[in-house]
Design a protein around this nucleic acid. Structure first.
Lengths: 195, 195
DNA sequence: GATTAATGAATGACCATTCATTCATGATTT
DNA sequence: AAATCATGAATGAATGGTCATTCATTAATC
C-alpha cells in the first residue's frame, strides 16, 4: 500500500507545499491539503502512510531535484573557485525561484518531529557530501590552504547560505537573492581581513 | 494576571527546558512540564498566558542572559580581531555548557508557530545588532576590506556558528565545541584561499 | 475573615486516521 | 454487443485520542 507515484501523488505533494507555505505547518491539516489537491481526505492515505510521510516525501522529492541540479552544474565547472561559485549560485537561484518551497524548508519544516527529521536528514547528508567533495578538491589541488578543515568549511558554506535564505524568507522574499552570490563567494574565498 | 517573576516562574521555565530537551517539543505537554516543575497544571496559568508564552519567556530569559554575556566579554576586547574571536568563543562555549538549552534552541524551538517566532525574533535581533556593531567597527577601522557588507558578514558569522552548534547537537553533543573556535576565527578572517 | 496562591479533575476543541460504501474501468460470458 | 462480474481507486462521514485550558474548591498568609 501507499504507492508513491502517479498524478495524484504529485498533486498532493504540490498541494502540501502550497498549503504549508500559505497557512503554516500548524494549519496544514490533512483535510486542507486534500481540498487543495482536489482529492478526498481518504485518498491521501492511498498514497502516503500518514501525515509525516507527506512531509518527508515532499522534502525528498524536491530536495532530490535540488541536489541533482547542483551536482550537474558543479560538474560543468572547471576550477575549484568556479565550483564554489556554482554551489552558491545554484543554492540561491533555485530557492529564489520557488518561494513556497523556500518557506517550507526554511521555516515550516524546521520542527522537531523526530520521524520527520530522520527522513529529511538522509537527503541533507547527500547535499553535505557534495559540498565536501568540492572543498576537498580545493584542498588537494592546493588552491585552498592545506589546514582547511573540510567539515568546518562545509559548515560555513552551508550555514551562510542557509541563513541567507532564511533572512530572505523572513523579509517576505522581497529583495533579490541572486545579487548576493558574488559578495558571498568573495567572502568565502578571501575572508574579512583587508590584505 | 500572569506574573512573570518568583521562584515558581523560574522553576517552570527550567522544567520546560528539561522536558522539551528530553522528550521533544511534541511531547512537551503542559501537564508534563507542570509535573517536572512540581506544580499543579493550573499553576502554570498563574505565571504564563498560555503554552506559547512559556516557550517565548524561556527563550527570552535564557537568550537575554546569553547576549548580555557576549556583549560584556566583547567590550573587554581591544582589537576587532579579538572581538570577533570573543563572539565565536562565547557563542560556542556558552552553548557547550548548556546542552539542554542547546537542544531547545537548535532543534525544538525551530517550529513555526508565528506567535512564538515573533516573540523570539525580537531578542534575536539584539544579537544580530551586536555582531553588526563589531563588523562595522572592523570596516571603519580599516581592518576589514571596505567593500565588506555588514549584514552579509553578520549572516556568515551567525550562520556558521548556528550551523556548527546544530551539527554538534545532532551528533549528541559528543565532540568538543570550543576546539572549533580557532579554526572558525581563522576561516572568517582569512577565507579559504591559500595566499 | 479576607485576600491571594495553588490545585487538579473536568471540559471541549481539534484533527489524524479509518472504513463502509460508491464509482469507474475493463474483462468475461452469453 | 449486451449483460454481468471483478478489481481497485476514491470518497467523506464518523471515530477516538490527545491536550490546552478552565474553574470550582482548598490551602496558606496576613
Amino acid at each position: 500500500m501507499a504507492k508513491k507515484t502517479g498524478e495524484k501523488y504529485q498533486a498532493i505533494i504540490n498541494a502540501a507545499v502550497r498549503v504549508i507555505a500559505q497557512h503554516g505547518y500548524h494549519n496544514a491539516q490533512v483535510s486542507r491539503i486534500a481540498r487543495e489537491a482536489k482529492v478526498a481526505d481518504g485518498t491521501i492515505y492511498l498514497y502516503f502512510e500518514n501525515k509525516d510521510d507527506i512531509l518527508i516525501s515532499l522534502f525528498n522529492e524536491k530536495m532530490g531535484q535540488f541536489i541533482a541540479t547542483c551536482r550537474d552544474l558543479c560538474n560543468k565547472a572547471d576550477t575549484v573557485e568556479q565550483k564554489i561559485y556554482v554551489l552558491v549560485h545554484s543554492h540561491l537561484s533555485q530557492l529564489a525561484n520557488d518561494k513556497e518551497f523556500s518557506v517550507v524548508t526554511q521555516i515550516e519544516l524546521r520542527q522537531s518531529n523526530p520521524v520527520v527529521s530522520k527522513g529529511i536528514g538522509e537527503v541533507l547528508k547527500q547535499y553535505f557530501s557534495l559540498i565536501d567533495d568540492v572543498i576537498r578538491e580545493g584542498v588537494e589541488a592546493g588552491v585552498f590552504r592545506d589546514d582547511v578543515d573540510v567539515r568546518l568549511a562545509r559548515t560555513m558554506v552551508f550555514g551562510t547560505l542557509d541563513q541567507t535564505v532564511t533572512a530572505w524568507v523572513m523579509r517576505q522574499c522581497k529583495h533579490d537573492l541572486v545579487s548576493q552570490v558574488d559578495p558571498i563567494h568573495n567572502l568565502f574565498l578571501n575572508g574579512l581581513i583587508r590584505k
